[in-house]
Amino acid sequence: MDLDLRKLRYFVAVADRLHFGRAADELHIAQPALSRQIRALEQDLGASLFTRNRHGVTLTDAGRQLLTDAGPLLASAHAVQRRVTVAARGSRRLVVGFRTGIPVIPAMQAFEARHPDVVVDVQRMEWDDQAAMLLDGRVDVGYVRLPIDEAGLRVTPLFAEPLMVVLPAGHRLAGKDEVTEADLTGEPLVWHADPSTRPTRRPYPDSGLRVRGVEETLEHVAAGRGISFVARSETVFHSRPDISYVPIPELAHDQVCFAMAASRTSPLADDFFTAALATAEITAECGVNDPSAAFLDGR
Results as ranks from 00 to 15, higher is better:
Met1Ala: 14
Asp2Phe: 11
Leu3Phe: 07
Leu5Val: 13
Arg6Thr: 15
Arg9Asn: 07
Tyr10Pro: 00
Phe11Gln: 08
Asp16Arg: 15
Phe20Tyr: 15
Arg22Phe: 05
Ala24Ser: 09
Leu27Ala: 07
Ile29Met: 13
Ala30Asp: 08
Arg36Asp: 11
Gln43Arg: 15
Leu45Ser: 02
Ala47Cys: 05
Gly56Phe: 08
Gly63Lys: 08
Arg64Thr: 14
Leu73His: 01
Ala75Met: 09
His78Trp: 04
Arg83Lys: 13
Val84Lys: 06
Ala88Trp: 01
Arg92Ile: 03
Arg93His: 12
Phe98Ala: 00
Gly101Thr: 03
Val104Ala: 01
Ala107Lys: 01
Met108Cys: 15
Gln109Leu: 14
Val120Lys: 02
Val120Ile: 13
Arg124Gln: 08
Gln130Tyr: 05
Leu135Val: 10
Arg138Phe: 02
Arg138Gly: 00
Arg138Asn: 01
Asp140Trp: 07
Val141Trp: 04
Tyr143Pro: 00
Leu146Met: 06
Pro147Val: 10
Glu150Arg: 15
Ala151Asn: 13
Val155Gln: 02
Thr156Glu: 01
Thr156Ser: 02
Arg172Cys: 03
Arg172Ile: 11
Gly175Trp: 12
Lys176Thr: 10
Asp177Val: 12
Glu178Cys: 02
Thr180Cys: 12
Glu181Pro: 00
Leu184His: 09
Thr185Met: 02
Glu187Tyr: 03
Leu189Ala: 05
Trp191Gln: 12
Ala193Val: 14
Thr197Gly: 02
Thr200Ile: 11
Arg201Ile: 06
Arg201Tyr: 04
Arg202Ser: 06
Pro203Thr: 08
Asp206Lys: 09
Ser207Thr: 11
Arg212Leu: 02
Arg212Ser: 12
Val214Pro: 05
Thr217Gln: 10
His220Tyr: 14
Val221Ala: 08
Arg225Asp: 14
Gly226His: 09
Gly226Asn: 14
Arg232Ile: 01
Glu234Phe: 04
Ser239His: 10
Arg240Pro: 05
Pro241Cys: 03
Asp242His: 09
Asp242Gly: 12
Ile243Arg: 02
Ile243Cys: 02
Ser244Leu: 08
Tyr245Glu: 09
Tyr245Ile: 10
Val246Met: 07
Ile248Pro: 00
Pro249Ala: 10
Pro249Lys: 09
Leu251Val: 06
Asp254Gly: 11
Met260Thr: 05
Thr265Phe: 03
Leu268Gln: 09
Ala269Met: 07
Ala269Glu: 00
Phe273Leu: 01
Phe273Gly: 01
Thr279Met: 01
Pro291Leu: 13
Ser292Trp: 14
Phe295Leu: 04
Phe295Cys: 04
Gly298Arg: 14
